[in-house]
């Protein structure tokens, strides 16, 4: 099982006049947890946003299951199974937790699995289950993050991209969420994880990319990246 499900080739993207990504290359292998690490401002979020189409790439290609999806609108990519849990959770604050989860399953493909996935989310996040009728905006930060990940799972993702899952959470909560991520991976979920918390990310991931100044500086099995002192000093500030 080492099929490449998502491949990013020479991706270039930015905001207006400012180019952020300068030919980024990376691959996500089916069933694995891949992580992108790098300093603040390296372009990790921009990479994920370009994959979803939130930011329009100015060059390069995004290949998903063998098809070029570079120019598809964001919602079409989500329908195909390229799903992102954005930084800052971005829940529908006025809507209930259950409604948020329902919206995760909006596409026709995900709708078919809605009941099963809702059960799954309640299984992985018992605290979310207790709050289904509550407005999402009234939850604590950690609970909101659980809903955000749960909403992503409701989309029946083939690749789940998660941006800064542990940002703003207590170390204990972050640990718990990472534990859940580990279980999900064991259940076969393909994940592309972007994390400030480099320790946790590298400890959990199968494969890691080190991003700096909009380019991949290095890649390899996560453990090797974690053990390489030079990389740790040069790019990760550890």
């Amino acid at each position: 099982m080492s099929d490449t499900i998502l491949q990013i080739r020479n991706l270039e993207a930015g905001y207006g006049e400012v180019q952020v990504l300068w030919g980024t290359n990376l691959q996500v292998t089916s069933g694995q947890l891949t992580t992108i690490v790098g300093a603040n401002g390296a372009g990790k979020t921009t990479t994920l946003r370009s994959i979803t189409g939130w930011v329009r790439p100015s060059g390069g290609q995004i290949i998903f299951e063998g098809d070029d999806i570079t120019r598809l609108p964001t919602y079409r990519k989500a329908e195909l199974g390229v799903v992102m849990v954005p930084e800052g959770r971005q829940l529908f604050g006025d809507m209930t937790v259950l409604e948020n989860l329902e919206m995760g399953a909006f596409s026709a493909r995900a709708r078919a699995y809605q009941a099963r996935n809702l059960e799954k989310v309640c299984h992985y996040f018992p605290r979310v289950k207790e709050r289904l009728e509550q407005k999402a905006g009234t939850l604590s930060g950690g609970e909101q993050q659980m809903v955000a990940v749960g909403r992503g799972l409701m989309s029946e993702p083939k690749v789940l991209m998660i941006d800064e899952m542990s940002l703003g959470l207590s170390p204990l909560l972050a640990q718990q969420l990472f534990q859940t991520l580990k279980e999900l991976r064991e259940d076969g979920l393909t994940t592309l994880l972007v994390e400030q918390n480099v320790h946790l990310a590298l400890a959990l991931a199968d494969h890691a990319y080190v991003l700096a100044e909009g380019q991949v500086q290095l890649e390899g099995p996560a453990r090797e990246v974690a053990d390489n002192d030079e990389i740790r000093k040069a790019y990760l500030g550890l």
């Binding site: 939130w54 964001t74 919602y75 799903v83 971005q90 529908f92 329902e102 919206m103 995900a110």
Partner: peptide, 22 residues
């Protein structure tokens, strides 16, 4: 479902696209 999608788009258009809502 469509009504909720309208509220979702009103609340956060970007996030609703990420959920597959056109």
């Amino acid at each position: 479902r469509l009504g909720k999608a309208i509220r979702a788009v009103a609340s956060n258009r970007q996030a609703s696209e990420l959920m597959g809502i056109p």
